[in-house]
Nucleic acid binder design. Structure first.
Length: 115
DNA sequence: TTTTTGACGATTC
DNA sequence: AGAATCGCCAAAA
């Protein structure tokens, strides 16, 4: 195989992002960690930008940074879309930040290993 | 092909 | 405690 250039990276990120349960949130670093690349957290966010036209759709609104901040809200259709979607799931957001982030945090590694 | 960027994270000042 | 910097990896220009 030819490592380096392959959509598999994006696919993996999208896949895990789609695994995030309803009303739950995760962080870019957590996904990166689940992929085996701890320091590729930035790439995760990048892959998310490619998740727009992804099929099935990726719940990017459930992915926030390690601080629970909706850093990617600016990349949504509207600056309030992310927050509204989170609130629609019961995830309270204040000042672009998930309130019970730690409580609602969903670790892919935990679930992937549990299976 | 090289350079710049980018929805992060941890560390250092 | 807050701000700035480095590290990491991959894609777009």
């Amino acid at each position: 195989m030819k490592p380096g250039k392959n959509p598999d990276f994006f696919a993996a990120v999208h896949d895990i992002a789609r695994l995030v349960p309803y009303g739950r949130v995760t962080s870019y670093g957590a996904i990166a960690r689940a992929l085996g690349v701890r320091s590729a957290s930035r790439m995760v966010g990048w892959a998310m930008s490619a998740s727009h036209g992804a099929m099935p759709p990726v719940p990017a609104h459930r992915v926030v940074n390690s601080a629970g901040l909706l850093t990617g809200k600016d990349h949504f259709a509207t600056p309030t879309a992310m927050r509204e979607q989170l609130e629609a799931e019961g995830t309270l957001v204040v000042d672009n930040k998930v309130v019970d982030f730690q409580a609602r945090f969903w670790e892919p590694l935990n679930e992937l290993s549990l299976d």
